[in-house]
Simulated scan of single mutants.
Amino acid sequence: MLPTADVSVRPAVPGDEERIARIQLAAWRASHVDVLGEVVLDSLDEQAFVERWRQAVTAPPGPGYHVLVACDGPRVVGVASVAPVAPPDPMQAPGGVVLALEVDPPDQRAGHGSRLLAAAVDLLRADGADQVQTWVVEGDAARERFLSGAGLGPDGRSRRLATGPGPDEEAHVVTERRWYAGI
């Protein structure tokens, strides 16, 4: 019998929130420094992230909100969260949005992101969703390749978000593009 890796995805449980926050911040610092800038990334409050994740894990705002973690053995190495999206027409099925999908930089490219996305889509389907969407920071070519490989594509929608002061103290704005797939 060949040895197999002990990798999995499971629902997040109380106690995971500190590791989840660290993973999210490390992933953002590794992939978004060119877009968000060091000033914005250095201003992120880790404890505020921990508290938001604690709330998401222990008291989600309603049905259809889920937080998942990817594990390599007992170690939490990634996180995904999903939420329901109301259909544009009451006669259509609801959708779902991947709010977060991050893998700790040293553990990337080992299949954890794919497992998290597959589990997230399974949960959305179980909740009745017929499509999934997510938002991608413009210029995040690695995420675009990952999502494209998973069957998602840009749908033409975009939004601009102020992320805080830039180097010259004016608001730093990023553009996100929505990616979508039927499930």
Score class of each variant (00 low, 15 high):
residue 137 V to G: 03
residue 172 H to E: 10
residue 28 W to T: 09
residue 64 G to Y: 10
residue 77 V to C: 12
residue 98 V to S: 02
residue 26 A to E: 15
residue 9 V to N: 06
residue 43 S to W: 02
residue 76 V to I: 14
residue 176 E to L: 11
residue 45 D to A: 03
residue 77 V to A: 12
residue 178 R to W: 05
residue 114 S to N: 00
residue 78 G to R: 09
residue 176 E to S: 08
residue 182 G to W: 08
residue 183 I to N: 09
residue 96 G to P: 09
residue 169 E to G: 12
residue 64 G to V: 13
residue 109 R to L: 11
residue 61 P to L: 08
residue 179 W to I: 00
residue 45 D to N: 09
residue 104 D to M: 13
residue 60 P to G: 01
residue 92 Q to N: 05
residue 33 V to H: 13
residue 63 P to E: 13
residue 61 P to I: 08
residue 19 R to V: 11
residue 160 R to Y: 14
residue 103 V to S: 12
residue 145 R to V: 11
residue 22 R to E: 14
residue 39 V to P: 08
residue 32 H to W: 05
residue 180 Y to C: 10
residue 183 I to V: 15
residue 89 D to F: 01
residue 118 A to G: 03
residue 106 P to S: 11
residue 138 E to F: 02
residue 112 H to F: 13
residue 118 A to V: 07
residue 48 A to L: 06
residue 91 M to E: 07
residue 174 V to R: 07
residue 35 V to N: 03
residue 117 L to W: 00
residue 52 R to N: 07
residue 81 S to P: 04
residue 179 W to H: 11
residue 176 E to M: 10
residue 78 G to N: 07
residue 183 I to P: 01
residue 153 G to E: 05
residue 107 D to N: 13
residue 14 P to G: 01
residue 37 G to S: 14
residue 111 G to Y: 03
residue 117 L to V: 04
residue 149 G to K: 01
residue 67 V to M: 07
residue 126 A to F: 02
residue 22 R to T: 07
residue 175 T to L: 07
residue 178 R to N: 15
residue 6 D to L: 12
residue 82 V to D: 00
residue 132 V to T: 15
residue 128 G to E: 06
residue 46 E to L: 14
residue 94 P to H: 01
residue 43 S to R: 11
residue 171 A to H: 08
residue 63 P to H: 05
residue 58 T to I: 01
residue 21 A to K: 07
residue 74 P to A: 14
residue 26 A to K: 15
residue 15 G to R: 04
residue 85 V to N: 10
residue 100 A to R: 04
residue 1 M to R: 13
residue 47 Q to K: 05
residue 48 A to V: 06
residue 146 F to D: 00
residue 149 G to I: 04
residue 48 A to N: 01
residue 137 V to M: 05
residue 12 A to S: 06
residue 88 P to E: 05
residue 158 S to D: 14
residue 94 P to T: 02
residue 164 G to K: 09
residue 84 P to C: 06
